[in-house]
Design a protein around this nucleic acid. Structure first.
Lengths: 362, 362
DNA sequence: CTGTTAGCGCTTTCAC
DNA sequence: GTGAAAGCGCTAACAG
């Protein structure tokens, strides 16, 4: 139970070193000009006293906190935790800290988190927005002076940088891959019910890319266009959602798909948790992958090469997406006034063993 | 390109509302006493001006930042991302924010992260320490006034709360489970090379629990004691590490194990990534689980019921561990002077299909 | 209940 | 190169 020593301040150090407060501050803060001798004495005094700069006082003056607010759905999700890793590493290199908020795809929580971050005077925000149409809120934040970079998703009509992948193209290529393997009946398992609803009302899946949950919408559109280009009419009953992004949802969706009169011979789950659900449902139905159904997933999760069969996936450079988002944010913080850029990083189709030829009609 | 409006301050609001700065501050800050009428006018003025409190100015006075520093090895690791989720949820409820730092088990990075957090004047720290013997550094931090709670691991001789599981008991029970299934030759795959080195030099695995990487050490000791209690002499060549906690390391370790003259009939990987490696190695060796080798893993990762076979694991309540750690930290922040407590939460053995009877001698 | 007055610990003019 | 003084935006005594 040592008494809680108070952390010494600059005046304390100045006194100890026998210099003025301003000199001590300059030596400690590494700005202005100080003679080598003074610098040395101050450093010595700081050391013996155990001086630690008070970053909050500094922030109050400089107006910069060296903190970045990161707003995403759920850090437990492997995609986000990788992205945060990328952000955090880049941040560390730039002397910035990462503050985290989970929204669970709840727009109220998202707004609340952003508001509190702004009150905290974060230098900038990296946001993975819940709602692709919610532009007014973020526009206000940006106009008021806090730079924002969007991650993984975009918001139409918002003047903010974004970093992610080309979702349309990624799904397009995955679908073409399945097509090339001979599949013509390809199902999609998504988490966003609105993707499906819209699909149900728009024969041929016209316009899915205008949907709210853009990642799902863009991917569904990419899938549709690959089909169309191959001369196959997209079927609305082949795009299903179990109501959410949990594994059970994908299990339900997959079972629904396989219960169709003409079940698909291949399935495209739109994220890694959904892939897990598809695989599980396939097994529960007593089917074998890829003999009975082929699967191409999204995101190269840690388990993809350990499941049976090893899963073929569209891999995104997730950490790099995070790192690039931070980079863009930093340059905005540094005052870049360049018009918004939407950066898309390359995806890779990692071929493993979950795709085979379609099961010939029984 | 709207001009960047400056955020209004309390004096601005006071002027607009026609009250004194102190009254405005009290109304806005929710402290002291203000008449309902004044409160109303201030609220109105704040709204029209778009006032946002400046948390950093407030922090400078109150000395509290409402920020918690979380220092862990790697947020990408599912264990840590779940723990952070638990911490973040509890923090949000308490009006606290979470700042993150990854150490990659590097003591230098850990110290640097902690130092910077202290300079940031975080209200407290949750640390998953790299080195179980490194007590002086953290002791200094605590004495200087920043409360610290340890997560998942402990440090001998450090007066700080900790929250985790009873690692010895968890491994003990997992081993007994394997023993009950008839296994007598049980291997351990760990990531910490020092566990193994120590084991190699201490016949019978005496003293592994004194090791630096405590989680691994305690679990290895629990394993050893279960064996001893069953009258089986622990074999030093049954505890292996591939040099780290990556999947490849576990693949190498498992192959080493299975190449022994008398290979084990069951394997206990000490964390979830290692489990993935064990499973992968088993398959690469052309063996089947559980027919040829049984496996009991640690941590109930998202993929455990989807791999083939579904994996039997020791599940930890990871989010709750995080939440409890935050709770303990808050009470320390609030000045609790109670002597340090080491809280262990219950684990659950989740039986799935990766354990069978031992393969009878060929 | 309200207003006035000091600062929190630091950076930043501005003289010297 | 160094010192003195003036704040950053807010809270915390104090009076009134």
């Amino acid at each position: 139970m040592t008494a809680r020593r108070e952390i010494p301040t600059i005046p304390d150090v100045a006194r100890e070193a026998g210099v003025s407060m301003a000199t001590a501050a300059r030596a400690l803060g590494g700005y202005g000009s100080v003679s080598a001798a003074a610098k040395e004495r101050v450093a010595q005094a700081a050391k013996t006293l155990g001086y630690r700069p008070n970053v909050v006082a500094r922030s109050m003056i400089t107006g910069r906190t060296n903190a970045i607010g990161v707003v995403l759905a759920d850090i437990e999700n492997a995609f986000f935790s990788s992205a945060v890793r990328g952000i955090a590493d880049a941040a560390r290199a730039a002397g910035q800290h990462v503050i985290l908020a989970n929204t669970d795809e709840d727009i109220e929580k998202e707004h609340a988190a952003i508001r509190v971050f702004v009150e905290r005077r974060v230098d900038g925000l990296i946001v993975c927005p819940t709602d692709g149409t919610d532009r007014t809120y973020l526009r206000g934040i940006i106009e008021q002076g806090t730079p924002v970079v969007l991650l993984d998703r975009r918001i139409r009509g918002l003047r903010a940088d974004s970093v992610g992948i080309d979702n349309h193209r990624a799904a397009y290529e995955a679908t073409r891959y399945l097509l090339a393997a001979g599949h013509e009946r390809i199902g999609v398992v998504t988490g966003t019910a609105s993707d499906v609803e819209a699909a149900l009302h728009r024969p041929g899946l016209v316009g899915v890319e205008n949907l709210v949950g853009m990642t799902g919408g863009e991917r569904t559109a990419g899938y549709r266009d690959a089909l169309l280009q191959a001369g196959i009419e997209p079927r609305v009953d082949y795009v299903v959602s179990g109501g959410g992004y949990r594994r059970e949802d994908a299990v339900a969706a997959t079972k629904e798909l396989m219960a169709l009169e003409e079940p698909p011979t291949a399935i495209l789950p739109l994220d890694s948790i959904l892939s897990l659900g598809v695989l599980q449902a396939v097994r529960e139905l007593g089917l074998r992958c890829p003999r009975d159904v082929s699967v191409v997933g999204f995101d190269d999760a840690e388990w993809t090469e350990t499941v049976t069969p090893p899963l073929t996936v569209v891999a995104q450079p997730v950490q790099e997406i995070g790192a690039r988002a931070l980079q863009r944010l930093l340059s905005r913080i540094d005052g870049s006034r360049q018009r918004p850029v939407h950066e898309t990083l390359e995806t890779t189709l990692v071929e493993r063993e979950s795709v085979g030829p379609p099961l010939s009609e029984g």
